[in-house]
C-alpha cells in the first residue's frame, strides 16, 4: 500500500510547481535522477503514508479517544459560551472581584512556596541527613492528599481552636481561617509540593561540583547557593513556580474547607464558578472561560520547556 500511495502523492505535490517540475518528470531516466528535491519527497507521501499505516488500530483508537476525551469538554465549553452576553458577564464587579482575589492569592501562595520551598528542596537534594526519605515523603504528601482533607487538617492545626491556631489567636490576635490570608495558606499547602518536587529534581540534575568550585574560591555554602546554584537552577525554579501558581489558582477543596466562601474575601474563581453554576450557569461558563484562558497562557509560557521535549 505504501508504494502505490507514495507516487501519486509525490506527483500531486509537484504539479503546482509549474512547467519546470513537469519537465523533470519527462522521461523515466530524468525522473530517476532528478525526482524532485529530496526534502519535498520526505515531507510528502512516504512519511504521511507511514503514519497512517504503521500504527496498530488497537493503539490508535484508544489514543484518539483519549484526545477527544481531553479536548471535547473544552470545545463544549466554547460552544455553549453565551458570546453575546459575555462582555457583560466579564465586566461584572463580582467576576473581577473573584478574579482579582484569585490572582492575588495564587501569587502570594507561590511567593510563600518559593521562600520556604526552594530552601527545602535544596535541603532534600544536597544534605544527606537521617530520615531524608521520610521527610521527602511527608513533604510531598499534600500532592496526593485530597485537598479537602488538607483543609480539615489545616483547620485542626491553624483553626481558632487548632493546636497552633489557638496560640496565634491568644497571643497575637491572628486568625487565619475564613480570611484572605487563610486562602493563601490553603493554596500554599496544596501547591508547594509541586514546587519542591520540581526544584529538587532540577537541583539533583545540576552539577554539585559547581558548589565545590565556589567553595574553593572562598564562598560559604550560602554564598555558593545564592551566587552559583540559584542562577543555575533558575529555569527549574521558574517552571516549579508556574506549576505551583497554576495549582494554587485552581485550588478548591482546601480553600473552601479552611477559608470558606465569602465573596470579596475568600471567594476565589473556582469557588465562584461552583456557586454560579447553581444559580446562573451562564456566569459559570463565563468564569470558566476566564480560567481556561489563564491556563492556556500558562501553558504557552511553559511551551519551550515541556512541549518541545518530544
Amino acid at each position: 500500500m505504501t508504494g502505490p500511495n507514495d507516487r501519486p502523492g509525490d506527483t500531486a505535490d509537484r504539479i503546482p510547481d509549474g512547467p519546470r517540475s513537469r519537465r523533470v518528470r519527462g522521461g523515466p531516466r530524468s525522473r530517476r535522477v532528478r525526482g524532485g528535491p529530496p526534502s519535498r519527497r520526505l515531507r510528502g507521501g512516504p512519511r504521511a503514508g507511514r503514519v497512517r499505516t504503521g500504527v496498530p488500530l488497537a493503539l490508535l483508537l484508544p489514543a484518539l479517544l483519549g484526545v477527544a476525551f481531553l479536548t471535547f469538554p473544552l470545545i463544549a465549553l466554547l460552544v455553549r459560551t453565551p458570546w453575546q452576553s459575555l462582555p457583560e458577564q466579564l465586566t461584572s464587579a463580582a467576576v473581577w472581584q473573584a478574579l482579582r482575589l484569585s490572582l492575588l492569592c495564587a501569587t502570594a501562595a507561590t511567593a510563600v512556596s518559593l521562600v520556604i520551598g526552594v530552601p527545602l528542596a535544596w535541603l532534600l537534594a544536597r544534605v544527606d541527613f537521617p530520615g531524608r526519605g521520610v521527610v521527602r515523603a511527608l513533604v510531598t504528601l499534600p500532592l496526593v492528599l485530597p485537598p479537602v482533607v488538607g483543609g480539615v487538617a489545616l483547620l485542626m492545626a491553624l483553626g481558632r481552636n487548632g493546636i497552633v491556631g489557638q496560640w496565634l489567636d491568644a497571643w497575637f490576635g491572628i486568625t487565619l481561617p475564613f480570611t484572605t490570608a487563610g486562602v493563601v495558606v490553603a493554596e500554599a499547602f496544596v501547591a508547594m509540593p509541586f514546587l519542591v518536587i520540581s526544584v529538587e529534581g532540577t537541583l539533583r540534575a545540576a552539577d554539585p561540583r559547581y558548589e565545590e568550585a565556589a567553595a574553593t574560591l572562598g564562598a560559604s555554602r550560602f554564598t555558593a547557593f545564592r551566587r552559583v546554584t540559584l542562577p543555575l537552577i533558575a529555569p527549574g525554579i521558574a517552571a516549579g513556580a508556574v506549576l505551583a501558581w497554576a495549582r494554587a489558582l485552581g485550588e478548591f477543596g482546601a480553600t473552601i474547607t479552611f477559608a470558606g466562601n465569602f465573596p470579596g474575601r475568600t471567594q476565589t474563581m473556582p469557588l465562584a464558578v461552583y456557586l454560579a453554576l447553581q444559580s446562573d450557569p451562564e456566569a459559570a461558563i463565563a468564569l470558566s472561560l476566564v480560567l481556561l484562558a489563564v491556563s492556556i497562557a500558562v501553558l504557552a509560557g511553559l511551551r519551550d520547556r515541556w512541549m518541545s521535549a518530544g
Partner: peptide, 20 residues
C-alpha cells in the same frame, strides 16, 4: 578547615566555570 577558608586554588578537570 572547610574548603572556603583554605588558601587553596583549584583548576578542575572540566574547569567548572560558572556558565551564567
Amino acid at each position: 578547615r572547610p574548603p572556603e577558608s583554605r588558601p587553596v586554588g583549584v583548576v578542575f578537570q572540566d574547569y567548572l566555570l560558572f556558565p551564567h
